[in-house]
Design a protein around this nucleic acid. Structure first.
Lengths: 335, 335
DNA sequence: CTGTTAGCGCATTCAC
DNA sequence: GTGAATGCGCTAACAG
């Protein structure tokens, strides 16, 4: 009654050998007569037989499973990417195992090791940056890996990420165009210098300079979500509080909006706001929120494509590169 | 250099037999001398050996992997549950494979079959309701399964779901208390009568009756997300348009808020609104949104607990039941 | 066309 | 304490 039906039983029932059944399972019908084909088919049906993929994987060294390790599942960006990746891989007959490293290198290390031990065919990682030895090892073993969202310098691994400089620039440009010159940027804290945050700040600085605007260190803040209310309080206690705030991701944006609400500050009259990452409520918020979006679908597609290419080419060392996708500004009314 | 290091090579390197290495791997140190123990340890280190979990699984019939099939990953509810489940299972040394059935029974069937073939140890399913034969089969095989969010009548399978009657009642009560008597409910469409939607409508009717209010069919609407704008238009074109709207889930709520924004209707002055499911922006929206929340963490915990219990008890047929968790009203200002 | 044989990498008796 | 032998379920030559 249980799932103990094996190929041997099917063979027995159909009065053929296991290998013939195996042939059948792999659709190599040329290797058998019509009558045996039908007997096998009937036996399978009757026994309700389903091949054990684990056993097959052991032999074939391919599990049709890939692991995805996100740095922090709480970002809407991660969720969007995850959805798209799940969709892509399922279209290609792969399953995905999702792990959340929670921004902790220890967890990430653990997941990578377990996933490798589980013989996944490849890995998509939002790297914490804390396990260079492992990254290096996979690279040297030619194990299929693609990095998402963050890059690791000095490692030749396919990487899909946003053009963060441009993202920041789009926002700064929009602010300046609307005559806001005192612009602040807030990102979540930059442990291990995760590239998006660093780059967004760099892009912000570059953009300010392009506009001939001064870069004021007190306007550049990084903090964990829980501390952002405090940061905002400090910002608005400044001699010259910012006229505009660029929220580095959706979590920051939400904190900013809470603060505005709590302190009855009007957007954009009292302070203009732009967020990086689209949020579900942007279009109907009051005011509708101007936002810089990441092309999450395209990013997921690119990552899928790269990983699949690596998986299928095996040990043919293809060129690796950093693929920068472009953000776009959705102009609404918060700036 | 590759991941081809096997237990045999370790054994050779350490000058012992494979079985002794196996003992070591399973931490049965009492079966070997201190010196061999150290030799094995050194060999493993030197070869950078990692056991192949697939091979182990084949033998032990346990993959430490569970599958989760959500009906529709677009609901914030699904995402929240998924996060919590991932967290729980990883704490217990399991990995989870996530699949999105997209409300299509065909996809669900395909996933279930593949996941079983992959020898997952258990399944958490948000059932589409379209594959009763499969559900039944798993039940009979005593395969660990728990249903989430939706129940399938006539099947004794552990199920975790919301007390949907109460959820609707909480909302209706809140409306009535604020003197709104013409209350509408909108849910996404009820294909195959998925229980939450049906139950929420039932609960809504019951609550109205309790308050001695008439149940007006024209106030009860179900529609796909894309059609909701049209539904709202019809609702407000009514002789007596509703004074209050209960949004059956986050997707409906968003559509309702868009409509309000587009038509410059003020909440709650022109129409009061309550949504089922907490949304990220509820607390700082204008006005802050009153909402009925599901205890997603508790639901995920319960599901984890039930599935783990089934996995660990194997074939001891435990009692199965429907576990109803309770919603709660977060009173803010949209009603 | 079909059956025999030999592993895949590991775990598990059961002797020595 | 240690090792040889066997099998998990399937695939893949290789004969016949």
């Amino acid at each position: 009654m249980a799932r103990n039906v094996t190929i041997a039983q099917v063979a027995e029932q159909a009065k053929v050998s296991k290998s013939t059944v195996s042939q059948f399972l792999n659709k190599r019908y040329e290797y058998m007569s019509e009558s045996t084909r039908q007997r096998i088919e009937a036996a399978i049906e009757e026994l309700n037989y389903h091949p054990n993929i684990i056993a097959r994987s052991l032999k074939q060294k391919s599990t049709y499973t890939v692991g995805v390790i996100v740095a922090n599942i709480l970002h809407s960006f991660s969720t969007q990417i995850l959805r798209a990746i799940e969709n892509n891989f399922n279209d290609n007959g792969f399953h995905i195992i999702i792990c959340n490293a929670d921004d902790e290198p220890e967890k990430e290390r653990n997941y990578i090791e377990m996933l490798l031990a589980k013989q996944v065919d490849g890995l998509i990682i939002f790297p914490t940056g804390g396990n260079l030895d492992l990254y290096e090892q996979m690279k040297q073993r030619n194990f299929p890996v693609v990095f998402m969202d963050r890059k690791i310098d000095g490692l030749e691994i396919d990487t899909v990420m946003l053009d963060n400089h441009q993202a920041a620039k789009l926002a700064v440009d929009a602010f300046v165009e609307s005559d806001y010159n005192q612009i602040s940027i807030i990102t979540t804290s930059i442990i291990r210098n995760t590239s998006p945050r660093v780059e967004r700040i760099e892009g912000y600085k570059l953009a300010l300079e392009e506009h001939g605007l001064p870069v004021r260190p007190e306007y550049i803040r990084t903090a964990d979500a829980e501390q952002i209310q405090g940061v905002l309080k400090e910002l608005f206690a400044l001699q010259e509080p910012p006229e505009a705030i660029l929220a580095g991701n959706d979590i920051v944006l939400i904190e900013v909006l809470k603060y505005m609400k709590d302190h009855q500050l009007k957007i954009p009259k009292d302070v203009a706001v732009i967020g990086i990452d689209e949020v579900s409520f942007a279009s109907f918020y009051s005011p509708p929120l101007t936002v810089v979006t990441q092309p999450t679908i395209e990013m997921a597609n690119k990552a899928t494509e790269l990983l699949l290419a690596q998986i299928n080419s095996k040990n043919k060392t293809a060129r690796t590169a950093i693929h920068r996708l472009h953000p776009s500004l959705i102009k609404r009314s918060s700036c």
